[in-house]
């Protein structure tokens, strides 16, 4: 039995006269013990999916089970066994670290000591500040406390909605390290993020855009399914280089990518052709090499296909 099974889930909102189709028939499965990522920009429908799976919203059609319980019928059963960290900081700001933790333990009918082993690694990092009010913690520490609170009752499935949004690179990295540790303790984790580079840290991901899942698979599978050559190009005048590349009919697409431009080549064209073309347009000094696509490249290609 899958930890989470989602079948054709649909959610619409009314906004004035218009109907916003937030989730348009989404299906996926998450195996037990898996770290599953839903990757997509704001407005892709990630939060709506999380809220339906945590029984906070009713789907308009379709359905899903979490640990075998139906999200509509068995909502009370689900509320007993999942952990949830919503996108916004969701602790009591005027309660101390300790008070928050004990409060959450009590409402989940457990105690801090009972499941301490699970949160120990994370909690020791914030323990020095246990008498500090949660509102006075740094962003990274708040996040750790929220994670402890969501874990305190040893949930079967943990839902983390955009835990790393607006968090700096250091805290993000630490957070992902914590998630990988939790996964080893057998907890199924669903996490959503707008950061494409975090996809590679998941076991499997679903790439979402505008209410639909574009593809699902392991990061490797998704990268392997990218069926074009990508060349990374760099020159002194990056902006000019991009203009020149975009005018070339041998490419599918060209866009900036960190310090390089990524160029998706049409079939039959390779590095040699590009060197000739760039030499003819005044970029003989360009540094060109082949690269493996990243999840971000794949995401963009999938987006373009949808536009077509």
């Amino acid at each position: 039995m899958s930890a989470v099974a989602v079948h054709n889930l649909v959610k619409q909102y009314k906004s004035g006269k218009a109907i916003i189709e937030a989730v348009q028939g989404v299906s996926f499965d998450v195996a037990r013990g898996e770290l599953f990522g839903i990757i997509g920009p704001d407005g892709a429908g990630k939060t709506s999916i999380f809220r339906m799976l945590t029984t906070l919203l009713l789907p308009d059609s379709g359905g899903a089970t979490v640990d075998g319980s139906d999200i509509v019928k068995d909502y009370q059963a689900i509320r007993q066994k999942v952990g949830y960290m919503p996108g916004r900081f969701s602790l009591y700001q005027d309660l101390t670290v300790e008070e928050n933790l004990h409060f959450f333990a009590t409402i989940f009918k457990t105690s801090v000591t009972e499941n301490y082993t699970l949160i120990k690694d994370i909690y020791v990092q914030i323990e020095p500040f246990k008498t500090r009010k949660a509102g006075k913690l740094s962003g990274g520490m708040k996040q750790k406390l929220a994670l402890c609170c969501a874990l305190i009752h040893k949930p079967v499935v943990l839902f983390l909605d955009e835990p790393t949004t607006g968090v700096d690179a250091v805290s993000r990295k630490e957070f992902w390290d914590m998630l990988r540790n939790l996964r080893q303790q057998g907890i199924t984790i669903l996490v959503s993020t707008p950061y494409m580079d975090e996809a590679s840290l998941c076991d499997r991901v679903a790439l979402m855009q505008k209410g639909k899942i574009m593809t699902t698979g392991t990061p490797q599978q998704i990268i392997q399914s990218f069926n074009h050559n990508i060349l990374a190009v760099k020159a002194q005048n990056m902006y000019g280089l991009l203009q020149v590349l975009k005018q070339w009919n041998a490419i599918e697409d060209a866009y900036s990518f960190g310090e390089y431009h990524h160029v998706i080549m049409k079939e039959r064209y390779d590095k040699k052709v590009m060197r000739q073309y760039l030499a003819s347009t005044g970029y003989a000094d360009a540094d060109i090499h082949a690269v493996t696509p990243t999840i971000e490249d794949c995401f963009m290609q999938l987006m373009q296909h949808k536009h077509d």
Partner: peptide, 24 residues
């Protein structure tokens, strides 16, 4: 101030394109 937070990768690049044009 963090102008592209949560924006999709294609639009993010279009946004930077506008930044380049303004800088030029």
């Amino acid at each position: 101030d963090e102008p592209t937070g949560g924006v999709d990768p294609v639009t993010r690049r279009e946004f930077w394109n506008m930044i380049y044009e303004a800088a030029t």
